[in-house]
């Protein structure tokens, strides 16, 4: 074999390994059949080109490109300025529906960022290749921290401005709890007193008797008695002094009392 040929074989081998590496890194993927989606965000939380795309935790694609699109508006009229073009493998494409949500999450000990796609419901329509969808903006940790700093500052201000009132309030609270404790001790003692025990026993007996009496009042006999009394009262109502006098005169009875 000629020297040139041997050297050429070596160069071809190196080029082939370069291609293998490109395929390992996902730069070249000649055999993959994937679909493409455009996910728009206003804040992408540090995701990068090449970050994995996962559906239900399984890597099914990657972020192909990130582009700034200052003039883009969603059909709802919202201004969304960042566009992530992602690829999703054919095997997972059926799980990505119109009601799927696109989150940016963090995983692993080093906090690698990835794009999580929640599976859509079967009733929702499937997405078409190249559709633009709105992603869920991740919470901004820096903003949360700065807000909590502001809140902490306000609390410190409040305490400093009302230092006297706050200490007074604490003092009052302290007294209140002391008094409350004393009351509790007193109650404890009282509940163990013999007279108190008798008093309570009697109260129980009285309430028992009362229950018995009210029970009797609700019996059928009692109800009949009420009715009779009611009738009697009804009849007695039109009776006044003149009527009684007339009655007695008619009957020939003379009563001194009238």
């Amino acid at each position: 074999m000629k020297t040139e040929t041997k050297v050429g074989i070596l160069a071809v081998g190196a080029a082939a390994l370069l291609l293998v590496f490109a395929m390992m890194m996902g730069v070249l993927s000649p055999f993959s059949q994937s679909h493409e989606l455009h996910v728009v965000y206003n804040y992408a939380g540090g995701i990068d080109t090449g970050s994995p795309v996962r559906v239900m935790g399984i890597t099914v694609g990657k972020v192909r490109s990130i582009s700034f699109d200052p003039g883009y508006r969603t059909p709802e009229g919202e201004e969304v300025k960042l566009r992530l073009t992602i690829s999703v493998d054919k095997k997972a494409w059926a799980s990505v529906r119109k009601d799927s949500k696109f989150y940016i999450n963090m995983a692993g000990v080093i906090g690698e960022k990835f794009l999580e796609v929640s599976p859509g419901s079967v009733e929702a329509e499937p997405l078409e290749d190249g559709t633009v969808v709105r992603g869920e903006d991740p919470p901004r940790i820096d903003q949360l921290i700065s807000q909590s700093y502001g809140l902490a500052g306000k609390i410190i201000d409040l305490v400093e401005k009302n230092e006297g009132s706050v200490s007074n309030m604490i003092l009052q609270l302290d007294r209140l709890t002391t008094n409350f404790n004393r009351t509790l001790v007193l109650l404890d003692k009282t509940s163990k007193n013999k007279d108190m025990v008798r008093l309570l026993d009697n109260a129980i007996k009285i309430t028992d008797d009362l229950a018995h009496i009210t029970g009797g009042l609700r019996s059928k006999k009692a109800e009949e008695t009420y009715e009779l009394v009611h009738k009697l009262l009804h009849r007695l109502e039109p009776l006044d002094a003149a009527a009684i006098r007339k009655f007695l005169q008619e009957e020939g009875v003379r009563a001194r009392i009238l």
């Binding site: 590496f21 996902g26 890597t59 692993g108």
Partner: peptide, 12 residues
Amino acid sequence: SSMRVFVDFQDL
């Protein structure tokens, strides 16, 4: 998958 977290194609 671990390699892809750190390594870029440009590294080779």
